[in-house]
Amino acid sequence: MMWMNVARAQSLMPTRGTEVASQVSNLYSFLLIVSFIASAILIGGMIFFAWKYKRKTDNDKTPYISHSTALEFLWSFIPLVIFLGVFVWGWYVYHQMRDMPKDALEIHVVGKQWAWETQYKSGVKASNLVVAPIDTDVKLIMSSNDVIHSFYVPSFRIKQDVVPGRYTALWFKANKLGEFHIFCTEYCGTQHSGMIGTMKIVSREDYDRWLEEESKVGLLPLAERGAKVFQVKACASCHSVSDAVVKVGPSLWQRFGHEEETSSGEKVMFDENYIRESVLNPNAKIVKGFPSNVMPSFQGQLSEVEMAALIEYLKGLK
């Protein structure tokens, strides 16, 4: 048992948020123990022989041992049995990961450069945030807007590539409340490492309350609604709003009503029309010092009301 605890401490895996995560950790602990034993035999043997049979004189005689069928059979057969055992165990746990539960709560996830967008059946949208109830089968139906991404929650030990042009799925049943990291694990360009989201596991009641609140966004004041659009469309992945720091694109803090110099040298007023044009056709007037073809177009993704709300929000960034 002490061995098991040592291995657990060694493994340093993140908190286990699901039953499957515990099973993966157990299998990993077993693999660590077997690996330690195998390494002790081979590396220990190597060090022992190196010490015991160190060259004494330049004329040492060594025995001529060409092979030993029995030994060679043993050290082929024993690893084979261990490997096959590990294979079956890995298969067993993997099957649970891939066997999608029926009647699960379905949440749609879209990966894009460089944010995760989630959409609930009720129409509620969120960005870089998945809120899900505890002790419930949840199925994520995922697709990508542009290149391949990979949806990874270390604490749940689940990962699935998110591929443009097809749907992939993941499921989990969280048994721990709290917030867990979502990482993108398929290289997707500049902000790959910034594509971090939060998996928020809440009680059933909190989940219902959250959905309820989110669906009331339409009743908020215009600027607050704009803040919501800004968040949902993940504008903040590339544009800072509370200081002048440059993330990928220019900061939007205190820009409204000021002149910008574009890459072609002309001056342009940062006003309602410039915001609108830059959202719908980002390459039209690029601020000097920034590359073109980085920001995607949001043509067709915002209603007129949302656009007005967004502009109102940017006006208020002081």
Binding site: M13, V20, V24, L27, L31, S35, M97, P154, T185
Partner: peptide, 15 residues
Amino acid sequence: IMLATLAVDVHFHDT
């Protein structure tokens, strides 16, 4: 061998 093991690789893949 750890990475060849299906369930464990799901966690380790691309890390």
